[in-house]
Simulated assay, not measured.
Amino acid sequence: MSPTPLRWLYLAGFFICAALLGTAYYFEIVEFMEPCPLCMAQRFFVLLVGVFCLLAFLFDKFRWPSRLFLGLGTASAIGGAFVSDHHVWIQSLPPEDVPACGPSFEYLMETLPLDALIQIMLSGDGNCADISWMYLGISMPGWMRLIFILFALVGFAALVYTWRRSNRKLSSW
């Protein structure tokens, strides 16, 4: 099977994810904005989407591996959208309903087992309610929610395209 016309879109997705991670590290290292547990979970999902985009690019000429990586990338984008949505929800809570703040992420990584760390990362704490950056009235998690939704929609459309493309070739035999 020949590579799809979407092949370069997969590579662009990888570079977009690399740029998003670079931006996150810029805000952390240069702007001294300490990431909360939900921010770290969103970074993880961006990393997953980027890796699956790269794998879809590399294995594009093979039908099933490319579909698998597209599906996993789309699922990762949906997971990231849910985490971002939860983060936006925590930021919208009134101050009296915000969960208590927890220890730093580094401390949690050093002291907790993996399952407890994942649970805390996905539930968030009071640190996640702080809005330290906005653009056009939308916070960072709000932008990430939009980006994850876009990745999920494009991934789903690419899956449908590759599925229909391969079915057309099979029916022409």
Rank of each mutant, 00 (worst) to 15 (best):
G80N: 00
G80S: 02
G80D: 00
G80K: 00
A81K: 00
A81H: 02
V83F: 09
V83M: 05
V83P: 00
S84R: 13
S84K: 13
S84H: 07
S84P: 15
D85G: 07
D85Q: 10
D85W: 10
H86Q: 04
H86T: 09
H87L: 13
H87C: 14
V88F: 00
V88W: 00
W89Q: 05
W89Y: 13
W89I: 07
I90R: 03
Q91V: 02
Q91M: 14
Q91I: 02
S92Q: 11
S92R: 07
L93G: 12
L93H: 09
P94T: 10
P95H: 02
P95K: 09
P95I: 01
E96L: 03
D97R: 15
V98W: 06
P99N: 05
P99C: 09
P99A: 13
A100G: 12
C101I: 09
C101V: 14
C101E: 12
C101S: 14
G102W: 15
G102K: 10
G102N: 13
P103V: 13
P103D: 11
P103E: 13
F105K: 01
F105P: 00
F105G: 00
E106N: 06
E106R: 11
E106P: 06
E106W: 10
Y107T: 15
Y107E: 08
Y107C: 03
L108K: 08
L108Y: 07
L108G: 04
E110P: 01
E110N: 03
E110K: 12
T111N: 12
L112E: 14
P113E: 13
L114T: 15
L114D: 15
L114W: 10
L114E: 06
D115M: 04
A116Y: 11
L117N: 13
L117S: 04
I118T: 11
I118M: 14
I118D: 14
Q119R: 09
Q119F: 09
Q119M: 01
I120C: 02
I120A: 01
M121L: 14
M121C: 12
